[in-house]
Design a protein around this nucleic acid. Structure first.
Length: 365
RNA sequence: UGGGGUGUCGCCAAGCGGUAAGGCACGGGACUUUGACUCCCGCAUGCGUAGGUUCAAAUCCUGCCACCCCAG
């Protein structure tokens, strides 16, 4: 293949083997792109999806290759995941994986193969800010599925070549296309019927705690105290139950600790010195101000003091109005118009304006 | 040992003669490219125990058991 030339219709497509990226492949092919599918092997668990991606590629007659990124994924994403939990933060591996692994590797492949574009099956779009020419991820139409939150850390260079074939579609739309196109997986099973998500992509089952324990048993014996049972106390310090080990809990959580009470109690704090879980009523978990560290800028190149923006504290939450103040350290202070529920340190706060991502960063303690 | 009180799901707790509310916890689902939150469903043929009264008792009566308080 002639990789010295930039092929304007060449597109690198990230393929997971799921409905979304499969339909994205179909649509790009239909639109006349020269599609090169790439599936990333991040952990042993990803194997089955890869087989389906390969089957779909073969069916559509597009190039396909698998890239084994397990080493770098372990060094960056898993290391951060473990590190965050041992330091009492609640990580979001997808937010880190997207810029450092997924889109990074796809970009490198685009360079290598001389492709102008990269694409994925995300529900999002890229827009240009008129005044500045900067690029920003944008939510698609109101009410539609939106996955921009997970990608806020993508740099301008990546956004510049990004295409989202699924922008503006609904999940039922996508399934219908898969159905009509007759897309089939490895064993001839219809892709249209594949279930959506499967939680954390590198942790088997739902028990990330077991996974953490495995990781830590080899490296950090000191951290194993995080798995030890301990007391649960209420706001007045009364011992009202027991917890399963502090790694199990994050701010605002209300399940997983057995407690003798008559009201709904949420995790308010964790005292590592005494291995104590502190719980309280819901209002104790409402915050009207947080600090955001390690920010990245998208639609805005910087934030001026008193900037009015809309903040999203978690993927499933809607944006809430806030005022942002940059600090000399480079971090940000965010004041919400109305208190938000359980902004967990380690999670991301993403700033939008008119549905476009302006900036974002990590919630600090 | 006398006197008083209490015994309803793992925890809290309604019920006061008419055929076991509710909350917490727990289990299951939905939602979801993170962790959480949220929502839906489930959860005592049984009310310390043994008898009695009644058409009918967790609810009334009696004995016993357990725990708590006061007195010695």
């Amino acid at each position: 293949m002639d990789s010295d030339l930039i092929r304007k219709n060449g597109v690198i497509l990230g393929m997971s083997g799921g409905v979304d990226s499969s339909v994205a492949a179909f649509l790009l092919k239909q639109q006349g792109f020269d599609v090169h599918g790439i599936s990333l092997l991040t952990s042993p668990l990803g194997q089955t999806g890869l087989e389906d991606a390969q089957a779909i590629s073969r069916q559509l007659g597009i190039h396909w290759e698998m890239i084994d990124v397990q080493d770098i994924f372990r060094d960056i994403v898993i290391r951060d995941f473990v590190d965050a939990y041992t330091h009492g933060r609640t990580p979001n591996p997808c937010v880190l994986c997207n810029p450092s692994i997924k889109f990074n590797v796809l970009s490198q492949a685009a360079e290598r193969l001389g492709c102008q574009h990269i694409a994925t099956g995300h529900y999002a779009q890229v827009k240009t800010i008129p005044d500045t020419g900067r690029l920003a991820l944008a939510k698609t139409e109101a009410g539609l599925k939106d996955q921009t939150y997970f990608m806020y850390r993508l740099p301008q260079m990546v956004l510049a070549r990004l295409i989202f074939p699924l922008a503006g579609m609904t999940k039922p739309d996508v399934r219908q296309i898969a159905e009509k196109a007759g897309l089939l997986g490895t064993y001839g099973d219809p892709v249209a019927a594949k279930p959506d998500s499967q939680d954390n992509c590198f942790v088997p089952g739902t028990s990330y705690v077991d996974y953490l324990r495995q990781q830590l048993e080899q490296q950090d014996h000191d951290a194993l105290r995080l798995f030890q049972e301990g007391p649960v106390v209420n706001m007045s310090g009364q011992h009202i139950g027991t917890h399963k080990g502090l790694v199990h809990y994050t701010l605002g959580q209300r399940k997983g600790f057995s407690v003798q009470t008559t009201e709904r109690l949420f995790v308010v704090g964790r005292d590592y010195a005494t291995n104590t879980l502190v719980v309280g009523p819901h209002e104790q978990v409402m915050f009207d101000r947080i600090r955001v560290v390690d920010p990245v800028y998208s639609g805005l190149s910087s934030i001026s003091s008193g900037e009015r923006l809309d903040a999203r504290i978690r993927n499933s939450a809607k944006e809430v109005p806030c005022t942002v103040y940059p600090l000399d350290s480079g971090s940000l202070t965010v004041e919400f118009d109305h208190p938000v529920s359980a902004p967990a340190p380690g999670q991301s706060c993403v700033f939008y304006r008119d549905g476009l991502i302006m900036a974002g960063g990590y919630i600090a303690d």
